[in-house]
Amino acid sequence: MNEIRWEDPFCGEGNSCFRLGTDTTGNAYIAIAGEEDTPLTDSRDALRRMILDIKAGKADHLL
């Protein structure tokens, strides 16, 4: 896998922070801050995980 360049965490009033990143070939990634070693690369998986986190109260600042 190419090295991922992570942006600063996006945090709001919720319980978790998300980070967005890109690699040298332009692919995009999303991960929960602190869990960058397991980023999501598929938009379906990213959306599913984000919805589950919102339902679990981990990402209420995104609503």
Rank of each mutant, 00 (worst) to 15 (best):
F10H: 07
P9N: 15
S43R: 09
T41L: 07
C17F: 04
P9K: 13
I30L: 13
S16M: 08
T25G: 07
E3H: 13
N27M: 07
N27D: 11
M1P: 06
P39W: 03
G26R: 04
A31P: 00
K55N: 12
L40Q: 12
L40K: 13
T25V: 11
A33G: 03
A33C: 04
R5P: 00
F18Q: 08
T41E: 08
C17W: 02
T22N: 02
R49D: 12
L40E: 13
L20I: 02
G57C: 03
I54K: 14
G34H: 02
R5Q: 14
A33D: 11
T25I: 08
D37N: 05
F18K: 08
L62Q: 09
A31F: 00
L63C: 05
A56K: 13
T22W: 05
A46T: 11
F18S: 09
D53N: 15
S43N: 13
G12V: 06
D45M: 10
L62R: 09
D60C: 04
G57F: 05
L63N: 07
D23T: 03
G14M: 03
E3A: 12
N2D: 15
A33R: 09
I30K: 05
D8N: 13
C11W: 04
A59V: 07
F10R: 14
E35T: 01
